[in-house]
Simulated assay, not measured.
Amino acid sequence: MAKPTSRRFIYKIVDGLEIDVDVYLPSCSPGKQETGHPVIVDIHGGAFMLGSSAMVNKDQVEDCLNRSWIVLAPNHRLCPGVDLLKGPMQDCRDLLAWIYDGSFQKALSTGEECKHRVDLDHVFAFGTSSGGTLALSLGFDVPRPVAGIFDMYGPCNFSDPFWETPLPHVQARLPAKPIDDCKSKVFEEFPVPIVGGVSLEGQTNPGGPNFADPRVTFALTQIANGKVMSAVFPSRDWDEVDPLLNVAKAGSRFPPTFIVHGAADTMVPISLSRDLYAALRKAGVKCGMTEVPDEEHTFAGTMKVGTRTWDLQREGFDFLESLIE
């Protein structure tokens, strides 16, 4: 089966760099000219330092298209040349504003034979790993939050000791001789890149990580040594970026949220998502959580349609669909 194709749009420009979004459109439906198509923002993973919009799971995109949703898979600036709040989070929030202020509808309608109308009452956010955190960030500190969120094993609860704990199984993968000055090479990139390495979303590489790439070496070193959050948000003012803390602040005003997490995850422990789920329930937010047996981190990149894992993670999209009246 052919994979879905996309159109490229520019939603912002920073330092002369065009930051783009891949837009996947469902089949034309005359009935949707009245109600409009729900929109889902699909954000890639990569520890906030790696990846690109091209690496989102196309089977999940197809699932959303079959529901007659418009899918937007954005690129965003990658840390550490810009921090988590001012880079990835701000870019995703600017994309949301671009949708809500009508700019996306205007761009979409230009030269389009089939006029897709955007349903602004049903704009959802979805993301895997770091993309899950960014999806959650569209539920707080924005003028108009999304209507619902699907978070797949996104990092949260950044004051938990895990975020300063080395990971021996990742350390074992690091090269014996690191690249000289990989940190300075990454920080010197200008403009700050929106594409880098892999997303860590399960994409296979027969040769293993490309440690000739300074960005890959830098990112995996931070992960291995328990320094990810310090690298991407050195101020450590977690109130500004931690979804768990912001659920508590927003209370029942936080958007309905569904979480999917692999029970065997060693990169982002499932206990962190359980903490988030508990906070959502305590705040009175409509929510749900599915724990997927035996799955490690980044399983979204390799799962097969029709498997138990596939069916379980679809519960997140079903949850969002239930929010559409």
Rank of each mutant, 00 (worst) to 15 (best):
P4V: 06
P4W: 06
K12L: 06
I13D: 12
I13T: 15
L17W: 07
L17S: 10
Y24V: 05
Y24P: 01
L25Q: 09
L25N: 07
S27N: 13
S27P: 02
S29D: 15
K32R: 15
H37K: 02
V39A: 03
L50K: 05
V56C: 14
D63T: 12
C64S: 04
R67L: 10
W69C: 11
L72P: 09
A73I: 06
G87R: 04
L95E: 09
L96V: 00
I99C: 11
Y100W: 03
D101P: 08
T110F: 07
G111H: 13
E112M: 10
E113Q: 13
K115P: 04
R117M: 09
V123F: 04
A125H: 09
A125P: 06
F126Q: 15
S130C: 12
L134C: 08
A135D: 06
L136M: 06
F140Q: 00
D141C: 01
P143G: 11
I149P: 13
P166R: 06
P168D: 02
H169N: 15
Q171F: 02
A172Q: 14
P178E: 12
I179M: 13
D181G: 01
K183R: 15
E189R: 11
P191C: 02
I194K: 09
V198S: 13
D213Q: 03
G226M: 02
V232W: 00
S235K: 15
R236I: 01
R236G: 05
D239I: 00
E240P: 00
D242A: 01
L244F: 10
F254C: 07
P255K: 03
V260H: 10
G262E: 09
A264Y: 10
A264R: 06
V268F: 05
I270H: 09
S273L: 02
R274L: 03
D275K: 08
L276F: 07
A279H: 00
K282S: 12
K286D: 13
V305Q: 12
R308Y: 07
D311R: 08
R314C: 14
F317M: 08
S322A: 10
L323E: 08
E325D: 14
